[in-house]
Design a protein around this nucleic acid. Sequence first.
DNA 1: GTCTATACTTAGATAGAC
DNA 2: GTCTATCTAAGTATAGAC
Lengths: 183, 183
Amino acid sequence: MGRRSDTRERIQHVALELFVEHGYENTSLREIAERLDVTKAALYYHFRTKEDIVHSLIADLVTALDELLDWGRQRPSTVETRQELLRRFSALVADRFEPVMHFIQQNIPAVKKLGVMHPLGEKLRELFALLCADVDDPEAALRTRLALVALVLGLNPIFGGAQATPPPDVALDVALELVAPRG
Amino acid sequence: MGRRSDTRERIQHVALELFVEHGYENTSLREIAERLDVTKAALYYHFRTKEDIVHSLIADLVTALDELLDWGRQRPSTVETRQELLRRFSALVADRFEPVMHFIQQNIPAVKKLGVMHPLGEKLRELFALLCADVDDPEAALRTRLALVALVLGLNPIFGGAQATPPPDVALDVALELVAPRG
DNA sequence: GTCTATACTTAGATAGAC
DNA sequence: GTCTATCTAAGTATAGAC
């Protein structure tokens, strides 16, 4: 039998790479095709549109978040649960979704235009809600948001990005502290 | 004499508005011109290129940051100084530069491509350095970055943006706490 | 499953009249 | 200082051969 091709996965990988590097709108299908040494038309065989590539990328993330949320929902709302949620989210980002998160964070206009925020934003808001639990304090809510931001901040070039990206475990420690009750 | 026109300022204002709304690359000069009810060519009278509009927008921010840094440099490196730096930065953002910060944060690829990160990134890194002072702890450094992020987080739609933007004073309180020594 | 060739659209930018 | 008209380059996408 003919060797099965992993072209589709390679397109996803290279496209994401370029989207992160140059931004979504500054990346043309021609560039993607060239880096893969295929033609533009080949891309259109695997994906209906350029937007579809992004959708396929986000879909995996949404699935993973859904599983995380499923776990979180059927656990008692305790500090331990919330901290374990952060740990698992941190691991998810570090292990599999760092590039996608990077892409999303730095291409908000594109992401909004593609209507990707609907499924994704929902999941993120629910994660946020689980982490906030019953707390109604606006300061605590902001600290919770910052805890999540801390876990993906290594990806942000603003405010001293390049020189010192915090290691994931440092970020996790700070995040855990942010959702812990005050002293 | 003929009535002097404020067209240049109006272009800056409308352009920034559209850049924030739809993103830099999704905003065409045609759109800007239409919203101002002038023609594309009129824009080219006031700005050499589309990129120049962005440069003019960032320049004001860089100037303001420079003044803030001047103040900070000639003060003793104390907790009070650092907290006052945060207060002044917070006021700067809230009063004048919220839209520009919003634009920068959500259009990183464009901003990088325009080479705007050189003057701007320098200032932000120096602000960060002043806030970090002599502290060498990576956790403290991350908390400092988060303090800055907190002050512009209202602009970020990720992680529960739309429904509850923290009021500036809440953000400032959390930021101040993040740079204060631990208990 | 991959290619060639091309249609279609829109972008940024310029020249020159008024 | 603003207009009309136009140029050039690039993008996404399609049709149809191999």
